[in-house]
Structure formats: C-alpha cells, structure tokens
Amino acid sequence: MNSSWKKHYQKIQEKKLSASATLVKAIALFDKEKVDLPMACDLGCGTGIDTIALIEKGWEVIAIDNQKQAIEELRNGIPVEYSSKLILIKADFEVITLPNVLLVNACFSLPFCHPENFNVLWQKIIQSILPNGRFAGHFFGVNDSWASDPEKTFHSKEQILNLFAGFELEYFEEVEKAGKSIDGKEKNWHVFHIVSKKIS
C-alpha cells in the first residue's frame, strides 16, 4: 500500500479520533425521524471510525475503501456482535457500484477522487440516496493548500451549491484557516462541511 496512507492510519490511531461532526449531525437528524432499518454507505471508510459509530447507533453499513490495510484493520477491529451489520468492499472510486441507502457518508474522502472521475462518482452518489435520505461529508475548496494537486478534486462554493440541487442543505459550513495536516505539516485548510437531505 501507499506508505503515506499507512502513516495516515497510524496517526489516526494515535489521536483516537471521534466520529466526524457531520456524521454525528446526520445521525441525530435521522434519530428524530425514527427511521426503521437504516442502511448507510461509508465511502472512503478508512479504518472505520465513522462505520463503527453508525453500527453502534443501529445502522447497517456498507464500508468502501480502496486501501487493503484500511479494510483489513476494520475487519479485524470490528466487535464480533457488529459483524453481521457490516459489508466490506475494497474498490476504487472509478469502479464502485453503490446500492440504494438512506445515508452516504464521505468523511474527507471525495477530494481524493481524480477530477476526471468526480462527476460520474457524484451521479452515482445522488442516485444511490433514497428519497429523504442524506449525504454527510466534506469537500475541499479552491483555496486549500493542496489545490495545485491535479490528482485531487476541489470546488468553489458555487460549484458545491450546484452539486446539491434537489437537496435541502441542513448544515453547511465553509471553513478556511491555517492549520496542520494529520501528519503535522503546515497547510491552509479550505473545507466545506455538509449535511443535506434529498428532496427530489
């Protein structure tokens, strides 16, 4: 596997990160609606912090990642009593097939889709979300330090709003600030944090 991803997972384990704030907000909204038999797709699941948070709240989860180590760590780390609620898939963004679900969670994963493949992937995501289902996740803005990387995808605010035509934006926050990446390197973050409900 790419050594940078191996270091990334090690840093996440060291920091003992909690489930993403956007996912927590989405789960709370579903809890108010008392949804029965909820199913989610955790797209770019990594080692499964958000996946496990969903299962703990009663969700069945299809967890997808293209890194073998991530899939193996999630498989080995999931409590036995949760294993029946988890489907693990190793696949690239370019070839994934998404089932119909109430929630697509994409915590800092979509920016790592190659720009040439993003529009097709996004259409798959939109089509997979059931009516009154939700998207929770993040996009990188054009002022992010990594925006010069041609392998990653970045969006302006206007482009983000266009992506969510047919959705109600329940939480939308644009954050631009100096900070550090998880490996401690200085960078400017430009991130859109989003929870949205499919209305058409």
Rank of each mutant, 00 (worst) to 15 (best):
N132H: 07
G46M: 06
D149H: 04
W189S: 08
A165Q: 08
E170M: 14
K177I: 05
A165L: 05
E33T: 11
N119L: 12
G44W: 01
V191S: 04
F108I: 09
N2D: 13
P79R: 05
G137A: 08
R134G: 02
I129N: 03
P111Y: 01
D31E: 13
F154M: 10
Q69E: 12
H138I: 06
N66T: 15
W122T: 06
S145R: 07
P38Q: 06
S200V: 15
D144C: 14
F93T: 02
G184F: 12
Q159A: 09
A63R: 04
K152W: 13
Q123N: 07
R75A: 13
K124R: 11
I126H: 14
K197Q: 08
K7H: 14
Y9N: 10
E173A: 15
I96G: 00
L98S: 02
F139K: 06
V24P: 03
E60C: 14
L161I: 09
I89Q: 01
F192W: 00
I27M: 04
A91D: 07
S83K: 12
F164D: 00
E176W: 10
L169T: 10
L102N: 12
F112K: 06
D31T: 10
I160N: 07
E81K: 10
A136D: 04
L37N: 14
A26C: 05
F167N: 00
N119H: 10
F93L: 07
S128I: 01
I199T: 12
L163W: 09
F93A: 07
G133H: 00
S145F: 12
V175Q: 14
P111C: 04
H155A: 01
A106H: 02
L98T: 00
E73C: 11
L74W: 03
Q159P: 05
D65F: 00
F154H: 11
T97V: 06
A53D: 04
N66K: 15
I126R: 12
D36E: 12
K180L: 11
V101I: 15
E56W: 08
S83G: 06
K25W: 11
K15G: 02
V195H: 02
C113M: 12
L37G: 10
A136L: 13
S196G: 11
H8L: 09
